[in-house]
Amino acid sequence: MPTKDEIFEKVRTTLVDALNLDEDDIKPTSRLKADLNAESIDFLDIVFRLERQFGVKIPREELFPESVFAGDPAYVDGGKVTPVGLDELAKQMPFADLTEFRKDPRLDKVEDLFTVDLIVNYLQKKLGG
C-alpha cells in the first residue's frame, strides 16, 4: 500500500504532464484552478491520467463533483453556502479540507477546495490507505 508521500509524488508527476508545469510549482496545498491554472477540461484530463497512473477507476463525480448544490436555495443563500449546504458539501466532498472554507463559505470559493491534497486524500482512501 503506497504511503501518502508516494501518492503525492505520483500525483505531482500526473499534474506536471497534464498541466505542463514544473514539479516545483506543485505543492500539497496548491489549488488546481487558482494556483495551477487548471481549466474545467483539464479535470477530465487529470482523471484519465490518474486512472492510468494508479490503475483504478475514478468516477469523475466522486473526485470532482460538478454541481454539489444543483441550484437548491436551501444550500445557498445570498452567495453563501448555508449550514445545510455545508453538510451536503462535506458529504459529497469527504476528502476536502473544509476548515478554512467554513469561516467564509462563499459560493465562489468552492472551487478552491479542489487542491492537490484533495486528490491525494481521495486516492489514499481509494487505494485502501
Binding site: L44, D45, V47, F48, E51, R52, R60
Partner: peptide, 10 residues
C-alpha cells in the same frame, strides 16, 4: 485509443 470513459477519450 489510450483512454476511454463516460466523459470522453484520449
Amino acid at each position: 485509443l489510450v483512454d476511454l470513459g463516460p466523459t470522453g477519450g484520449r
